[in-house]
């Protein structure tokens, strides 16, 4: 009995209880008000005035339940994944800082960005960069601007001008700062040319027509499209092809990927686009975040695999059989939790 009480007062038991409480209270499968109430009250009934540790009683756990009412239960899986990601990031960042290596697979599109700037230098023509057509509140625009920082840095080292065309005013302002900072960091502040930072129009196709005009009149040797694009993607990429430019695109907009793949020399697809700045900067914390994303996938994949196997076996068993029903129930529960 004493041992049992000691166990209940231990840190591990408190954590387990808290975990169970969170799961029971926050998981949609158990989140019906009735169930939560019963579970919460039972904790008090079964373990009245239990001293879990100094000042923490079963009643306190009950109050913790009420706090959980503020939590959006539908988003629990996302929250758990976010916590996993943060833990992975800190572990990997520490490892990288201590001199550990982070291995990332080679992406031809990343090398292509450097080649594209090199080619513009050889030809004595500018590089055209477009950070997508969405505003700064789109994460793809931020990812595009991160890539622009590296493009502007390499271009400044090579003494090659960069033209940036934007559809949004705020994006223009940030791009100006980024190119200015990158040119300064490369030791060539004169490579930042204010007239090359251009806002064209908030209107989608007016912007597209403006960029096409730049391509055909100023003949940039390389066109780099990194950000969020919609129907203008093919119009831009085809015009870039006609102007004879090397083209490297990157977007997470799945619907536009086929057009970029068909018309550009290289395309960074989805997560490759988000990871591009890490590849280019090679800074330890940034590399660690890319690796943490890979580890996160290792957490997600087994869950997916379990679901796929369960539903496949369930479908191949005779309909209505005991095991088929069990598996169906399991898959339903899995879906509910996720």
């Amino acid at each position: 009995m004493n041992r049992a009480l000691t166990f209940l007062q231990s840190r591990a038991a408190r954590l387990a209880l808290a975990g169970a409480a969170i799961f029971a209270g926050a998981t949609p499968a158990f989140a019906a008000d009735e169930t939560t109430r019963v579970l919460a009250s039972r904790l008090g009934e079964v373990l009245p005035d239990l001293q879990l540790s100094d000042g923490i009683t079963s009643a306190t756990v009950g109050s913790a339940y009420r706090l959980l009412e503020d939590f959006n239960v539908v988003k629990l899986p996302v929250f758990v994944l976010l916590i996993f990601f943060v833990i992975f990031f800190f572990v990997l960042n520490r490892r990288v800082r201590k001199g550990g290596e982070v291995e990332l697979r080679r992406l031809p599109g990343i090398n292509a960005i450097e080649e594209a700037i090199g080619r513009a230098t050889e030809m004595g023509r500018p590089v055209l960069f477009i950070p997508g057509i969405n505003d700064i509140d789109d994460i793809q625009t931020l990812a595009g601007i991160n890539i622009l920082a590296h493009v502007a840095y390499i271009a400044a080292e090579y003494d090659t001008p960069v033209i940036v065309a934007t559809r949004r005013s705020v994006v223009l302002t940030i791009c100006e700062e980024v190119v200015k900072a990158a040119s300064l960091a490369a030791g060539r502040p004169e490579n930042y040319i204010p007239n090359n930072m251009r806002y064209l129009s908030d209107e989608q196709f007016a912007f597209t027509a403006g960029v096409n005009g730049i391509m055909l009149r100023e003949r940039p040797a390389s066109c780099i499209y990194q950000g969020c694009f919609y129907s203008e993607s093919l119009i831009l990429a085809e015009t870039g092809f006609v102007s004879g430019a090397i083209q490297v695109a990157g977007t997470a907009n799945v619907s536009q990927l086929p057009f970029f793949v068909a018309a550009c020399d290289y395309t960074l697809i989805g997560e490759e686009f988000y990871a591009a700045s890490a590849y280019l900067s090679k800074e330890p914390p940034v590399l660690a975040s890319v690796k943490a994303a890979d580890w996160l996938k290792l957490v997600i994949m087994p869950v997916m695999l379990i679901g796929v196997v369960a539903i496949t076996i369930s479908a191949s068993l005779p309909a209505g059989s005991e095991w088929s029903l069990h598996l169906e129930e399991f898959v339903r529960l899995l879906k509910e939790i996720l």
């Binding site: 994944l81 976010l82 990601f85 943060v86 990031f89 994460i139 931020l142 990812a143 601007i145 991160n146 622009l148 920082a149 940030i174 700062e177 980024v178 200015k180 900072a181 990158a182 300064l184 960091a185 997470a252 989805g270 997560e271 686009f273 988000y274 990871a275 700045s277 900067s281 800074e283 914390p285 940034v286 975040s289 890319v290 943490a292 994303a293 996160l296 996938k297």
Partner: peptide, 21 residues
């Protein structure tokens, strides 16, 4: 997942190209 990683990099100031000047 890439979006989560990029978002957190920006939020925690790990990647801030616009502040380097």
């Amino acid at each position: 997942i890439g979006m989560i990683a990029t978002g957190l990099r920006v939020i925690f100031g790990i990647e801030r190209p616009y502040l380097k000047g």
